[in-house]
Amino acid sequence: MNRAHGLKKMATQPTSAATEIRVRVLAFARVREIAGASELERAVGSAATLSELWADLVNEMPGLADFSSSIRFARNGQLVDADAPLQEGDEIALLPPVSGG
């Protein structure tokens, strides 16, 4: 996110911008089926990490718990660790164990 965009958002949403960020979540394979959609939008606290986003999602959709030990994450097209922090507008991909080939 560039700075100009962030400022514009704060100007239009003065109450939520400082405490909450919104991310787009992409779900694949079995995780997509459990979520019931290939794309979700979720709000998290401004200092939240991927682990916290995942915990929220498991809370909301308990079937996802099966993947808690195997799920991997990508942020904006790059694989990242679960302790990676989130930023406004991030595209987060939930990647269950792969089975290509």
Binding site: F28, A29, R30, A74, A93, L95, P96, V98, S99, G100, G101
Partner: peptide, 14 residues
């Protein structure tokens, strides 16, 4: 190449 593809590339089969 095929071993790494099967390990790493985000593709899923049903």
């Amino acid at each position: 190449a095929i071993d790494e593809l099967k390990k790493r590339v985000p593709i899923w089969k049903k």
